[in-house]
Write a protein that binds this DNA or RNA. Sequence first.
DNA 1: AATATTTATACCCTTAAGGGTATTACATAC
DNA 2: GTATGTAATACCCTTAAGGGTATAAATATT
Lengths: 66, 66
Amino acid sequence: MSAISKFIKKKRREAGLTQEEFAIRSGLGLRFVRELEHGKETVRMDKVNQALSMFGMEAVPGKKDE
Amino acid sequence: MSAISKFIKKKRREAGLTQEEFAIRSGLGLRFVRELEHGKETVRMDKVNQALSMFGMEAVPGKKDE
DNA sequence: AATATTTATACCCTTAAGGGTATTACATAC
DNA sequence: GTATGTAATACCCTTAAGGGTATAAATATT
């Protein structure tokens, strides 16, 4: 599971949001939110960044291991 | 320009590779490499990670500003 | 300056991402 | 047990991402 997928799932739950509520608030499709959290690797980066921006984050290069 | 785009462009040049050479070595399409470095936002995350993995990196959540 | 190299756009095609919706599975209650 | 809320899969459709190739522009290099 990617760091991004795990991050979104964790943060969303901490915010007390369902996938549906998160989808609505972020302007993303519910199916996309599900697939992103489920670890789908072929998602589009703009949508990923749209999700991350809900928590003031964006996709950046990071060390692979650790 | 996204942090990832800038990172790839910078690292590729530091490695002394042309976009074409980088495309070949990473197994990505030349056109994709061009569009990624040019800042296209709708690229696919798996391809982005394939590019980042050339430098031992992957897309992770990071603070937006700074 | 001219020339070679690298990078950027534009064309068409195939494939699949994302959306909507419905259905199914999985919880956590009651 | 049944009901309720949440999450996961499956269907079809529209749109566009990515590949290949060709051409144009930009950037060295001499």
